[in-house]
Structures are given as C-alpha cells and as structure tokens.
Amino acid sequence: MSRAETAVRSPRPLRTLGLLRSELTTTFRRWRTLALLGVLAAVPVLIGAAVRIETSDGSPAGPGDGGEGPAFVAQITNNGLFLVFTALAVTLPFFLPMAVGVIAGDAIAGEAHAGTLRYLLVAPAGRTRLLLTKYAATVAFCLAATFVVAVSALAVGALLFPLGDLTTISGTRIGFTEGLGRALLIALVVALSLTGLAALGLFVSTLTNSGIAAMAATVGLLITVQILDQIPQLHAVQPYLFSHYWLSFADLVRDPVHWDDLVRNLQVQALYTAVFGSAAWARFTTKDITA
C-alpha cells in the first residue's frame, strides 16, 4: 500500500511541469493567441511610423504647446528607447489587458465548452494543480504579450530613430545600457500589472461553461473598471481598482525612481490575485464538472 502510494506521488513535480508544458504549448500554438500577439506587435510599428511621418519636416512630436498625447511621445524622436515606454503606455489601458482577458477567460470555460475539461481531470493531477497550471500559463502569456510589445517597439525605435544616452523625465542623464535595463524592468512591471486581471478572468472562467461568455465578461469588467477610474466622484474607491496604478510604471523613468505608486500597484495586483485566485479555487474544486 505504502509503496504503491509513493509510486504515485513521487513523480508529481515532474508531472506538474509536464502539465504546464503541455498547457503552454496548447496556449501558444493557438491561432487566436498568435493573432493577439501579432496585433500587439503591430501597435509600436504604427506609433513609430506615425511619429516619424509627423516629424519628418523637423517639427517636434506631439502638439508642441499643449503637451497632450500619449506619455513620452515628445521624446521619441530624440531617443528610440522612448518608443518602448510610449508603446507600453498606449497598449496598457486596453490592448494588453483585453488580450489577457481573452486568454484568462478561456482558460477553464473554454475547456468546458469544448468538452475537454473532464479528460484533463481524469489525469491524476487534481483540480487545484490544474487551476494553478492554468494561472501560470495565463501569467506566462502576460509576460509574452508585454515583451512582444517591448521588443517590437525597441526594434522599430532602433530602426527609425537614434539611440543613445537618454534624459530621464527628471532631467538627469543615464547611459543607454541603464536605459535598456529600465526598459526591461518596466516590461516586467507591466506584465505583473496584468496578473490581477488574469486572476479575475480565471475566476470568471470557472463560473461558466461558455468560453465566449467568460471572455466577454472579463473584458466587460475591464472596461467598466477603466471607466469607473475616470469618474472624479469615485476617488475614494479608485485606489482599490486593479487598473488605477497601471501607468505608475512611468515612475521607473524618473531619477531617482519614485517607488510609492509602483509598490502600491504591486500590492493591489497581489491582493486581486489572492482574492480571485482563492475564489476561483473555491469554485473550481467544489463545482460539478459536467462537460
């Protein structure tokens, strides 16, 4: 008896890895995922081309006097690295989280819809582990999506604009290598900013058996929260909305770095992950799997 049990339990870590690997392959091999990443990669190309055309006559980027437009857009012509920051600032409010919402919403409900969920559960992995694997795959997609935007922006920026030492928004100068390091850090922070939404999407995904419904609900929640974050009368609750501190990644381009909002952002994401991750667990481990 005891020998049989050890035989079953010992290869578990490996099996979890195997589960994760197969989950990652199915996620990233889907045409849907590749199309989403393709759209995300196109955004920096679009911004870079637009800025390049607008400034080809020597005029400064963006409306010169008002200073409106996406963050950092005025600096792109002087340093292509700023295209990374602008591209992330442009994609973070909707493009990136929408893609994450699609992947997260589809995670459980999509399997249920396709009738494959019960086959996954037949494998001796357990529901908790399946859920964790699904979440890990979604977080991996957050990372991949952010880095696709960042790398595409860096390539376009290097192609169309000069690179070199950059002036931080605090007015100090840092070398290109440090600038690149900060860009990497920013991409990481942006990816982590999406983990709260990923947990929320996963929870929604456990509530329904329709993948489309889960995606629509997650993206709908995202849009609702983004709108609530704009209403000044709601300023008391806004710090607790998952999207409130998203743009704080720009604080990494200050010198010295202004950590307050960055830390708050990560705390909010951790809170959402804990709450909705455990809610998804409570739901998924107790519900009847019928499909």
């Binding site: 002087n78 605090s170 007015g171 010295p256």
Partner: peptide
C-alpha cells in the same frame, strides 16, 4: 543627494 541629480544638459530636440 547624488551630484548627478543637479546636472542638466538640455536633451536633443528640446525647445
């Protein structure tokens, strides 16, 4: 404070 905080060179292209 770090001495570099007070160094300022106008960035290229600034008005």
């Amino acid at each position: 404070p770090a001495a570099s905080a007070f160094d300022f060179t106008p960035p290229k292209g600034a008005r």
